[in-house]
Amino acid sequence: MAAIEAHNLTKRYGTLTAVDRVDLTVEEGEIFGFLGPNGAGKSTMINMLLDFARPTDGRVEVFGMDCQRQSVATRERMGVLPEGYEVYDPLTGRQHIQFAMESKRVDGDPMDVLDRVGIADAADRAAGGYSKGMAQRLVLGMALVGEPDLLLLDEPTTGLDPNGAKAMREILTEENERGATIFFSSHILEQVEAICDRVGILSDGEVVAVDTIEGLRSAAKSGTKLLITVDDLDVVDLDAIEAVEGADSAWIDDERLAVNCSSAAKIDVLVALNDSGADVLDFTVEEPSLEDLFVEYTGGRS
C-alpha cells in the first residue's frame, strides 16, 4: 500500500489554481522530497493532506485512507511539522510534548523526546521565549511522538542553523531506518539531495518531474560533462565518440577531451575511446547540480 496517493488533486482559490490535477504516489519506506519554488503549491498540497484545506477536485489518501473523510485516522499515523505554526507561548517545552503524547494516546517521558531533538535544557522554560530554531526542534519533537508511520514536514529546516539542519537530517534518517515514510517539502536543494530517495518537482501547481536524483540527472538535457585525459589526443576520433548513443558533443578542451553526454552514457564513451586505441589516463565527471536541474524543470523561477 502506498503511503501517499493523490489522484487528480486540484485546489483553486477563486481564479488561482494553486494545485493543478496532481497525481502522485509515495511508497512506504521512502524519503520523498517535494521541491519547488515558493508559491508553487507545496504548502497547499500538504494542507490538503492534513485537511487544513479541502480539495476543489480529486482526492488524496494516506495509507489508503481518505485525507478528508478520515482525517483524524490519517493524522493518527502521521507526525507533522507544519509551516507557519506558532507554539503555545505560556506552555513549556515539556508541556508541549506532553500534549502531543496525550493527543496521540502514548505513554512515555517527554524528556526523552526533548533530549533527542536537543532542547532538553530548555524543557521547563515557556516556549514563547524559544528562538525560531528551538521552536522548530520542539515541533519536530511533537511530530516524533508515538513513532508515526509517516512524517510530513513542511520546510523542516526553516530557522535552523547548519548544525540544526544536520541534526534534523540525522533524525529523519533514523526515523526512516525505523520504517517511517518521510515526505518533506523544501526549496533548499542541498537538503533534498542529501537524504532523499526520490524527488518530486512542483512548478505552478503541477508536478513536472518525479524521479530519483540520479534519474533526474540522466533525464535532464543539461547532462554530464566528462573531462578525459588520454595519452595521445591525436588518435582520438571525435566523430566516433559523438556516435556513441547518449553522447551529445565531443571536443578538445585544454589538452583534454571533453564530452557532453547523458549520465548513463559515461561508460560507453570510455569504452569507445579505448576501442579507438587511446589510453585513458584520468577522467573527471562534472554532474549538473540539482540547482541546474531545478532551474531547468521550473523554467528558472526559483
Partner: peptide, 14 residues
C-alpha cells in the same frame, strides 16, 4: 491568525 491552530490540528484531533 497566529497559526497555533495548525499545531493543534496536526495532531489527531477533529
Amino acid at each position: 491568525e497566529s497559526g497555533r491552530i495548525l499545531l493543534l490540528l496536526s495532531l489527531p484531533h477533529s
